[in-house]
Every structure is written in structure tokens, then in C-alpha cells.
């Protein structure tokens, strides 16, 4: 499959139908391929089960550049691509999308395989490409679970705790935050040019200092900003150097939205209004539903 992809990329680069190729490049180790743009040769390109990076996010960076970009997207990455398309952050005609099959992404610890797959792959429901021009090896994609609710198990476990335990749990997780901003940078929908967390006066990214801000506000605000737009691509949790389970915040919003406003998968199409930009006059629940439950 990797050879097929390389041949296709080389062919399209040579005949000039695309200006650049966005794919994964061989890293320092076999286990850490990195996202890269290729403009001439694609010899270094790789595709294997270590290629985790969601390449959709990098399309925003080349939106203003000339020429078309050939991009390889795994099924779950196409949801992010659609979401960016919907928000007019990228344009469809500047991308040639080749959907590639995915057998799940392996977890890497200290550059070694742990034998496990990423959490998002264990509960994966996104097995179809939502947007593509061409498919390569799509039949290798495996179906993991038929029950889309398995991904909410962890959240239900937290919901069962009492308020004090929940607070202690989250403080424990958030206090690990070193405010590297990796979650912010890796997240496709989280892409304001001027971020609320940045200092307007100095035009710099805010970094961790001796505050309790990271523990209290940062992740809540960030999760809320992408509520209804998060495709649950799991990049935030994957890139976190401190292993904070950030997907639990986003998924809580997804769970609430599904329960209160009907099933919604961000990025499944580009027409449906997002749940927070839409309303239903008669059927929407009152906020009191929150106090009334358990």
C-alpha cells in the first residue's frame, strides 16, 4: 500500500497536477513518522501503523499557497477535513484527497511499540472516508465495534462519582498540564488566529507560569470552544506529553449533544448546522435537565 501511495504521489508531482504532497515522512526512528510536505521526490514517504498525525490540520497552513496539494487522509482524518471545509478554513478545490485505509494506530512509548492501539482506535466508528477523490487500500480498514456507545464508557464512570471526587479527579489530571499548547496546536477545529489565551500586547503564546489557570480554566475553555465542532479525532490526547485524557472533556460534550439534541457527528457532512449554531424551538431541553438528573 505504501508503494502504491508513493507511486501515485510521484506520478502526480511529476506531471504537475499537484504542487506538493502532504504525507508522512520517515522519522529518526521507524516508530515516529512525522508529517511533511514533498515538492520533488517522495522517497522518504512512509505509511504504516505509526502514522498517527491528522494531516487535515496542515491543510490550513497551505490554504494561501499556490497550487494544489495532494493529501493522504485516514478515514477519521476526513471528518476533520470536512469540518475545516465547513468553516471555510480550507477550500476543496485546492486539495486532491487520497483516502487511505487504516488498520488502527499503534501506541508508541519511548520509541517502542507497546502492542496496544490508540484509545480512539479501540472505539473507532469512523471507518468510511467522508470526502475523497480517490481511495487506496480502503478495504484494510477494520471495523472495531458495532456499538457506538462503547466510547462513552469512561465518561459514564466519571459521571457516577460524586461532585467532590470528580473535582479531585480533574484537578489531578489538570495539574499535570505544563501548558505546552500542544493540544491547541494539534486540534483541527481549535484554530483562531487570535487565541483568547494569547497575550495581545506581546503577540506571543502564553506559557505556563506559577498560576492555577491551567488547572482551572485552560482545558475547560478549550473544550468549550470546540464543542459541537470536535470530531473526536483524539489528537489532543495523543499529543499530550503529560498524558492528560483530554478526549474525556470533548467526548462529554459529544455525549450531551447526542443525548439532548439528537445524534450529531461533526464533519460527517458540510451542510448540517452545528448543534450550538442551531436550535429547536419546541424540543430543546431546559438547562434544568442538568440539575434534575442523578
Amino acid at each position: 500500500m505504501q508503494e502504491l501511495m508513493k507511486a501515485k504521489a510521484q506520478e502526480m508531482l511529476s506531471n504537475g497536477s499537484v504542487t506538493r504532497v502532504l504525507a508522512w515522512k520517515k522519522g529518526d526512528f521507524e516508530t515516529n513518522p512525522e508529517p511533511a510536505f514533498f515538492t520533488k521526490h517522495v522517497d522518504d514517504m512512509v505509511y504504516n501503523q505509526y502514522c498517527a498525525t491528522n494531516l487535515s490540520n496542515f491543510m490550513v497552513g497551505v490554504e494561501k499557497e499556490e497550487g494544489k496539494t495532494l493529501v493522504f487522509l485516514k478515514p477519521c482524518d476526513t471528518f476533520s477535513f470536512n469540518q475545516l471545509l465547513k468553516e471555510n478554513r480550507i477550500s476543496r478545490d485546492k486539495a486532491y484527497i487520497i483516502g487511505v485505509g487504516c488498520e488502527g494506530v499503534k501506541v508508541i512509548d519511548e520509541m517502542q511499540e507497546t502492542g496496544a492501539l490508540l484509545e480512539k482506535c479501540n472505539v473507532c466508528t469512523k471507518i468510511k472516508h467522508m470526502v475523497y477523490d480517490e481511495l487506496i487500500g480502503e478495504d484494510v480498514t477494520r471495523r472495531v465495534t458495532d456499538d457506538p456507545l462503547t466510547r462513552f464508557k469512561d465518561i459514564e464512570a466519571i459521571e457516577k462519582m460524586d461532585a467532590g471526587e470528580r473535582f479531585a479527579f480533574w484537578q489531578g489530571e489538570f495539574s499535570k498540564c505544563i501548558r505546552c499548547n500542544a493540544c491547541r496546536n494539534a486540534c483541527p477545529p481549535c484554530g483562531c488566529k487570535k487565541c483568547v489565551f494569547d497575550n495581545d500586547n506581546y503577540d506571543t503564546a502564553q506559557k505556563a507560569n506559577v498560576t492555577t489557570f491551567e488547572e482551572q480554566m485552560f482545558h475547560i475553555i478549550r473544550a468549550y470552544h470546540v464543542a459541537g465542532r470536535c470530531t473526536d479525532c483524539g489528537e489532543c490526547t495523543r499529543v499530550c506529553p503529560q498524558d492528560i485524557p483530554l478526549h474525556l472533556l470533548n467526548r462529554k460534550f459529544i455525549k450531551d449533544i447526542n443525548a439532548l439534541y439528537g445524534e450529531f457527528q461533526a464533519g460527517a457532512d458540510i451542510e448540517t448546522l452545528g448543534p450550538l449554531t442551531d436550535f429547536n424551538i419546541d424540543q430543546d431541553a431546559e438547562p434544568s435537565i442538568v440539575y434534575d438528573r442523578g
Binding site: 467532590g164 470528580r166 473544550a223 462529554k252 430543546d284 431541553a285 438547562p287
Partner: peptide
């Protein structure tokens, strides 16, 4: 819009303890 937004926010605050 408030109704949807604040429902989600309160639910999240509850979730955070």
C-alpha cells in the same frame, strides 16, 4: 441559543465537579 449553550456549560461544570 442561550438554552443550548448554557445547558452544555452547566452539564460540563457538573462533570468537572
Amino acid at each position: 441559543y442561550t438554552r443550548r449553550r448554557i445547558t452544555l456549560l452547566y452539564s460540563m461544570l457538573d462533570y468537572l465537579g
